[in-house]
Amino acid sequence: MEIITVPVTAFAQNCRVVICKQTRHAAVIDPGGDADKIITELAKHQLSLQCILLTHGHLDHVGAAKVLAEHFSVDIVGPQKDELFWFDALPMQAQMFGFAPIAPFHPQHWLSHGDTFTLGQLRFDIRHCPGHTPGHIVFYEATHQLVIVGDVIFKGSVGRTDFPKGDAQQLLDSIKNQILTLPDETRILSGHGPDTKVLTERISNPFISGKFG
């Protein structure tokens, strides 16, 4: 597996290009904006884009999804269906966060807890992790021991829960039950900021320990 991180938008969101090394098949996870930048990166590495994967429906994670899907004629896949209202609210999100206007769109396929997604020879397990948003999911690849978590957890922090339908206790339950139960050395690739590991966050994340929040 190869992963290329493409920071996008003023929110420095970590768009991830995930690549199966054997097939050169790729998926773009959470393209929040700057579609041209992502297209250039795919062309530079001569990748065959298979789909767009989304962890949740916040604009800084989905803003370029429709443009990329139409450009490459691929489907948008995920998140979980409880996220529908955030896609319907994309025009409001754009106004709220100072993005260019965007029309609502919907994924072609929703994902549920326990589903699997295959990219070439890579296999991702889908884990539903509500709290930051109700339909948030994460993508766990056991063979390479990494999990792409969107805005569930960050190095030393956790996702916000003050947006509509956010729930702080639900978020902590998701982290403890779906992230911290993974093997200690599992890499956590967050939607913002640096990567971290499960063991590091279990030991030192103050929001999880109860020191904050």
Score class of each variant (00 low, 15 high):
residue 1 M to G: 14
residue 2 E to H: 02
residue 2 E to R: 05
residue 3 I to P: 03
residue 3 I to W: 03
residue 4 I to D: 11
residue 4 I to P: 07
residue 6 V to N: 06
residue 7 P to M: 07
residue 7 P to Y: 06
residue 16 R to T: 12
residue 19 I to A: 09
residue 19 I to Y: 11
residue 20 C to Y: 05
residue 22 Q to V: 10
residue 22 Q to M: 09
residue 24 R to W: 04
residue 27 A to T: 13
residue 29 I to A: 08
residue 29 I to V: 14
residue 30 D to N: 08
residue 30 D to K: 00
residue 32 G to I: 11
residue 34 D to N: 12
residue 34 D to M: 09
residue 35 A to Q: 03
residue 36 D to R: 11
residue 38 I to R: 02
residue 42 L to F: 13
residue 46 Q to G: 08
residue 47 L to P: 00
residue 49 L to V: 10
residue 50 Q to I: 00
residue 50 Q to H: 01
residue 51 C to N: 12
residue 58 H to I: 15
residue 59 L to S: 02
residue 62 V to Q: 11
residue 65 A to T: 06
residue 66 K to C: 04
residue 69 A to D: 13
residue 71 H to I: 04
residue 73 S to K: 03
residue 74 V to C: 01
residue 75 D to N: 11
residue 75 D to V: 03
residue 81 K to N: 08
residue 81 K to W: 09
residue 82 D to A: 07
residue 83 E to A: 14
residue 83 E to D: 15
residue 84 L to P: 02
residue 84 L to R: 10
residue 86 W to R: 15
residue 87 F to D: 12
residue 89 A to K: 08
residue 92 M to A: 15
residue 93 Q to F: 00
residue 94 A to Q: 03
residue 99 F to I: 03
residue 100 A to P: 01
residue 104 P to E: 08
residue 106 H to R: 14
residue 107 P to K: 03
residue 110 W to E: 05
residue 110 W to M: 05
residue 110 W to A: 04
residue 111 L to A: 07
residue 113 H to R: 03
residue 115 D to Y: 11
residue 115 D to W: 12
residue 116 T to E: 09
residue 116 T to Q: 09
residue 119 L to A: 07
residue 122 L to Y: 10
residue 122 L to D: 10
residue 123 R to P: 02
residue 128 H to K: 14
residue 134 P to C: 14
residue 135 G to S: 09
residue 136 H to W: 08
residue 136 H to F: 08
residue 140 Y to A: 12
residue 144 H to C: 13
residue 144 H to G: 14
residue 145 Q to N: 13
residue 145 Q to G: 06
residue 149 V to Y: 13
residue 149 V to Q: 11
residue 151 D to V: 02
residue 154 F to Y: 15
residue 157 S to M: 05
residue 158 V to S: 15
residue 163 F to W: 15
residue 163 F to H: 15
residue 164 P to Q: 07
residue 169 Q to M: 15
residue 171 L to M: 13
residue 176 K to V: 10
residue 177 N to W: 05
residue 178 Q to W: 06
residue 179 I to H: 00
residue 182 L to K: 07
residue 183 P to C: 09
residue 184 D to Q: 04
residue 186 T to A: 06
residue 189 L to N: 00
residue 192 H to M: 00
residue 192 H to N: 00
residue 193 G to K: 02
residue 194 P to K: 06
residue 194 P to I: 09
residue 195 D to Q: 14
residue 195 D to S: 14
residue 198 V to S: 04
residue 198 V to R: 03
residue 202 R to V: 07
residue 202 R to P: 05
residue 203 I to C: 01
residue 204 S to A: 11
residue 205 N to Y: 10
residue 206 P to C: 01
residue 208 I to M: 09
residue 210 G to R: 08
residue 211 K to H: 13
residue 212 F to V: 14
residue 212 F to S: 13
